[in-house]
């Protein structure tokens, strides 16, 4: 009881801190919406072109398509899905407080996250890469970053990894990737680093088409999984089966091509992945 109450306090604090993250989930308290309806609540990113993007009432991107497919396998039609915004810092809290049933939001499977939530998948293997201006041929990978200005998001895994890999890198950190892209286009920085999927999404945006390119030398492995309540092995098994089916029947390839293809992006080695066993 006490733990649950603290959980609710934490959720409230997280929501308050995350500003504007609210809006969509107003039945608060997580008092089980199971009832008679056949709804499912899925957390996605609302601001990542190519992965999870909200435009008006339309949701597009690879994560959205994967989530829709998986939900269908679980017996939920596309119309029954309630999309909830899941910013990176709030994903664990959204799951553990029951505000969402699944999180499909560029959610890398890591050991420290596994302590708080369970994962099904991976459904995609991304890698950290570099985004540069299309006419810049001097940057071909992390080894060529000497004397270059690099941009990433404050506190992100990508920023930490590049600091480890290239000690003394000249790194500008901003609050969001959009600012990095703006800085890259205005020649303020020479490269932007994070998961190649996210980079491909920006490169494919209409206003940047032809101006930016992904280098294509991934130097890490990010295994995107579907986050769900810790210990719910039954649900995990169902979601894993759905992912396997999606890969086998060719739907996976279609989803990847449709969402990340326009940027000339090819999934790196290791794709399509074999989902881990549920534990």
């Amino acid at each position: 009881m006490t733990t649950r109450r603290w959980g609710a306090v934490a959720a409230t604090a997280a929501l308050a801190l995350g500003l504007g993250a609210c809006g969509s989930s107003d039945d608060g308290g997580g008092s089980g919406s199971g009832g008679g309806s056949n709804g499912i609540k899925i957390g996605i990113k609302f601001d990542q072109p190519g992965l999870g993007l909200k435009k008006g009432n339309d949701y597009t991107g690879m994560d959205v398509d994967v989530a829709t497919y998986v939900a269908k396998q679980l017996g939920h039609e596309a119309g029954d899905i309630q999309w909830v915004q899941a910013p990176s810092a709030q994903r664990e809290t959204l799951i553990s407080t029951g505000q969402v049933d699944l999180v499909v939001a560029t959610y890398s499977i890591t050991d420290s996250r596994k302590e708080k939530v369970s994962f099904a998948g991976p459904y995609f293997v991304a890698g950290q890469d570099l985004l540069v201006r299309a006419d810049d041929s001097s940057i071909t990978g992390p080894d060529t970053l000497d004397g270059k200005k690099l941009c990433s998001v404050t506190g992100s895994t990508s920023a930490q990894k590049v600091k480890d890999k290239v000690p003394g890198v000249n790194l500008q950190e901003f609050g969001t990737y959009s600012e990095c892209v703006a800085a890259l286009v205005s020649n303020g920085v020479d490269a932007l680093t994070t998961d190649d999927t996210i980079l491909a999404g920006y490169a494919a945006q209409d206003q940047y088409k032809g101006k930016l390119k992904v280098v294509g030398q991934p130097f890490s492995e990010e295994r995107y999984g579907i986050g769900l309540k810790k210990g719910d092995t039954a649900l995990c098994q169902k979601v894993t089966d759905a992912i396997k089916k999606m890969i086998d029947d060719g739907e996976w390839q279609k989803i990847v091509d449709a969402n990340l293809g326009p940027a000339g992006y090819k999934p790196p080695a290791g794709n399509p992945p074999t989902p881990d066993a549920c534990s």
Binding site: W6, V9, A10, A13, A14, S88, A89, Q90, E92, T93, S112, R113, K116, T154, G155, S156, T157, A159, Q160, L171, Q172, E173, F174, G175, E179
Partner: peptide, 23 residues
């Protein structure tokens, strides 16, 4: 928003990213 993790709010963002949000 411009300084990265050198400053306390930036470090909080990094800890939240690595360890999840915790009280």
């Amino acid at each position: 928003v411009i300084l990265g993790t050198a400053e306390s709010a930036g470090l909080l963002a990094q800890i939240t990213e690595n360890e999840g949000a915790s009280l």
